[in-house]
């Protein structure tokens, strides 16, 4: 039997994913006027990880967050899980492209907004294709897009603040 060696990278991912899961729980506790309109605080972690440790780590942290978050909140493999997964996948792909934008001009705020749009876009498309096969789903698009803009900006600002205040370091709980 081979023993799995736990690297520092693994520990870091685990810590960051824990932080993201914690924020997911906070997110779920915040009352929302409309299902789907959520601050998405866990994306702050994704943004910070993306800036500090790169895209691959961000993917790991997000995947673990979606998995562990859904287990803790009890929607693993329920429709909400797939919505979450689709939204996260699309926003990670968007971040993968958008992080190549010149950093002098585009900071975490831009990335956060683009990711938020990709997130809600993916969820709407999945909802339309699978859960509610009716174009009526799209009636709420302006509301969702507006929320994505507001919360995307907020999360981006928080991520930018965190990145500006904590110097880059290799410690696990950066």
């Amino acid at each position: 039997m081979t023993q799995l060696a736990v690297t520092a990278e693994d520990r870091r991912v685990a810590w960051l994913a824990t932080a993201a899961v914690g924020l997911s729980l906070v997110d779920a506790a915040i009352p929302s006027p409309l299902p789907g309109v959520k601050p998405g605080l866990a994306n702050i972690v994704t943004l910070v990880v993306l800036a500090r440790y790169g895209w691959a780590t961000a993917v790991w942290v997000s995947a673990l967050r979606v998995l562990a978050g859904s287990l803790l909140l009890g929607y693993f493999l329920a429709p909400g899980f797939f919505l979450s997964l689709t939204g996260t996948t699309l926003s990670l792909l968007t971040l993968g492209v958008a992080r190549h934008l010149p950093p002098r001009w585009f900071g975490p705020v831009s990335l956060s907004i683009l990711a938020a749009f990709a997130h809600i876009g993916g969820q709407l498309l999945l909802a339309r294709a699978w859960l509610i096969p009716h174009d009526g789903v799209f009636l709420l698009t302006p509301v969702f897009a507006g929320a994505a803009l507001v919360f995307g900006t907020m999360n981006g600002l928080i991520a930018a603040k965190l990145l500006a205040e904590t110097p880059p370091s290799d410690s696990a709980d950066a």
Partner: peptide, 16 residues
Amino acid sequence: WLALIRPGDWLVVLGS
């Protein structure tokens, strides 16, 4: 907080 928004960010915010 405003200082954290880079020029392109404004563009993205306004464009969005």
